[in-house]
Design a protein around this nucleic acid. Structure first.
Lengths: 333, 333
DNA sequence: CTGAAAGCGCTTACAG
DNA sequence: CTGAAAGCGCTTACAG
């Protein structure tokens, strides 16, 4: 079987405690240097690997941060996973990525990945009331947690690092107005075209100021084929807008294809802007404009908030709102 | 603190063993039904959650399968993560995704995520000798492991479920020959243009049979900007091929942009085919052809192999080679 | 600087 | 069907 601290202790005629100190507190000077060296040498030679389950059980700490994220297939989500990993590993902890299916019911909580963790980074979780009901039957409800992402789940009472979606939308729509577009549509997921939603409020505000009429094209789900079909049907029924802002870059990709299916030119007939920062957009012909999330900044900030929360569980909640960057490309010129 | 089986046992005047049996073996009939119900009711009422670390320490089983994957940002890798999760969760186990940086040195093994797991699904790991040197200083070397992916790391002695890259390449190149292309280039990552590599061998074989000359455009790394720049430089120096097969869909995306940068038409001037099955390719203008991985099949198969390996550690190695599907689109017509 | 004792929350073994 | 004992491999507490 695997080598334990007791095996090493026996080999060296020491107590397991001394071995434990050497192996779990590399920087401690509670052990005589000579002893430390002997232990380290023996651990190396005998192939010792700590049992993390035992460590966690005894100490109550796991040194793991969970990353909750929904569909990794969205390009920006995978960038977020990468950036969080770098931030967390930089602090000497490990990250465990869990693809969360946010559709689980509260009573199914027991079926989830409920390993103990020291903290949670939750990317675009459901609204606070829904989320808390879900977590009520899990181990996680009292684990320090920071929310990050596009801000769909703000406001909530805890810590968060989000991007300023309202400002992003405003910039994009104002750009469409500034290049003379008069019929500016918004491709939006189901439920997104209501007052109170950041994107929507900004869209309405800018259009009103410009004296233009809103036109929402509402998607039943987030799948590209759905978006492509829905946009085609909308345009066949109502004619085409001359500018389109998409709630999400994948919507913009599918909308682009829909426009080409109808033989409409981008940007000549329809100017197009996405939202998120998908890296493939600039490789389209023409390259597609977008407002990009500051992924690295956001993840670093979220981790910093989580680190502080872990160290000072009772400090007041903090948050950071980060700016988007508008990437103007040929699709909106 | 958290509720334990002892708390429940005390509450009901039972031994912790009985509580343990009810809570950890839902299907066992070793407990009297009445007792079982009392325990379940109390567990529910008191908010009991099992401590997974304690369970793993005592039983030696974790019920976790690790998924090792490199850069999740590649679209197909995130599809793989999703499909593996579905397969593993379907069997009642949990999956923990670890983004592996395959560049770590063997002596850095101790810095890796070394939590115990019951099995490992490794997506496109390094070749066997390199991998085993890396794992030598970790807990993982004796954990059941199955390889899956594009087959870069075949052959190895263990279990694997891979796609037939050679056949895929052959189909794609033959298609380019069949539509009359005479100068067919291969956009290939550094190290990929050598005999023994599946892609390369198939490429050479088909070209030779058709009496055409090979032309490799070699990339220094896997980044899209690198590919775009390298293809542009190649064409400026040597003129343009009339057909290009890309080792990878992201290469195809960047190559498409490079061709448009040079004002070349796809497919009129250059026919283009990628490899992998990136879902965005069909939204380009024109839609880009590719050979698609059977992601769901492959992941299901890999999990099945791993399940059997866990149950019968000493059975002979098994493997599955799965077919690609050629998706012919406008970019190669 | 080192060690003996107790315990983290479970499960395995065996006894009845 | 139920339970008392021992142990999984560590760390925390305290004693010296």
């Amino acid at each position: 079987m695997a080598v334990t601290i007791h095996d090493i202790a026996r080999e060296l005629n020491l107590s397991s405690m001394t071995v434990s100190r050497v192996l779990s507190q590399p920087d401690s000077n509670l052990v005589k240097p000579v002893t430390r060296l002997r232990v380290e040498e023996a651990a190396q030679r005998m192939g010792y690997r700590p049992n993390r389950n035992a460590r966690a059980l005894a100490s109550g700490r796991t040194n793991i941060i969970a990353l909750w994220i929904s569909h990794l297939s969205t390009s920006v989500y995978s960038q977020i996973a990468q950036a969080c990993r770098v931030a967390v590993q930089g602090a000497g902890l490990e990250i465990s990525i869990s693809e969360m299916d946010w559709h689980f019911r509260a009573h199914e909580g027991h079926r989830l990945f409920q390993w103990p963790v020291d903290g949670i980074l939750a990317v675009d979780p459901p609204p606070q009331d829904v989320l808390e009901k879900m977590l009520s039957s899990t181990n996680w409800k009292d684990v320090p947690r920071v929310h990050l992402g596009s801000g769909q789940s703000v406001p909530w009472e805890g810590d968060y690092a989000h991007v300023d979606l309202g400002a992003a939308t405003r910039t994009a729509i104002e750009h469409l107005v500034s290049i003379g577009r008069k019929r500016i549509a918004y491709v939006v997921p189901w439920g997104g075209n209501q007052p109170g939603m950041w994107h929507y409020d900004a869209y309405i505000e800018v259009l009103k100021k410009a004296g233009l009429r809103p036109e929402c094209i509402v998607m039943d789900d987030w799948e590209c084929p759905t978006v492509r079909r829905t946009v085609i049907e909308h345009i066949k029924a109502h004619g085409h807008p001359d500018g389109i802002f998409c709630h999400h870059d994948e919507f913009a990709i599918a909308t682009f294809r829909a426009l080409r299916d109808l033989d409409l030119q981008v940007p000549k007939d329809v100017a197009l802007i996405g939202c998120e920062g998908n890296i493939f957009l600039e490789y389209f012909d023409p390259p597609i404009s977008t407002v990009a999330m500051p992924v690295d900044d956001m993840c670093r900030t979220a981790w910093e908030l989580l680190r502080q929360r872990i160290n000072e569980p009772d400090s007041p909640p903090r948050n950071a709102i980060l700016p988007f960057e508008f990437l103007a490309r040929a699709s909106s010129q």
